[in-house]
């Protein structure tokens, strides 16, 4: 897989070809905000709550799913869709600086 260097909010980060950070350590809130802008998402406190949940799960190495978000107590699945329309898990994962959920191939 090829990676590229990108600058978000003055921070140089490494991304894969689909625009996901390859090193979570490079993430900070300003980087997340700049990626959100690219995704045309206006971030609110609720958005950041979801991002924080995703990052906590990522640190615990828990694979993420829509069901897990719905049971998180942070948002319902419907609200998740309202916050990050069209493919909420992949968009919110990108803003969180964590890998996109993948299958085996």
């Amino acid at each position: 897989m090829t990676t590229t260097e990108k600058t978000y909010a003055g921070v140089c980060v490494t991304c894969n070809e689909q625009g996901y950070l390859t090193n979570f350590e490079q993430w900070n809130k300003d980087v997340g905000l700049a990626i959100a802008k690219e995704e045309q998402i206006e971030m609110t406190d609720k958005h950041w709550e979801v991002i924080q949940f995703l990052q906590e799960q990522h640190k615990k190495q828990v694979p993420l799913s829509i069901r897990k978000i719905g049971k998180s107590g942070v948002v319902s699945i419907k609200e998740f869709y309202q916050l990050f329309p069209k493919g909420p898990l992949k968009i919110s994962s990108r803003i969180s600086g964590i890998p996109k959920p993948v299958s085996c191939i």
Partner: peptide
């Protein structure tokens, strides 16, 4: 599919 495509891994996507 709930995933981002029928193939999700970069090499498989390219090859298949």
């Amino acid at each position: 599919t709930p995933m981002s495509g029928a193939f999700t891994k970069p090499i498989a996507t390219k090859e298949l």
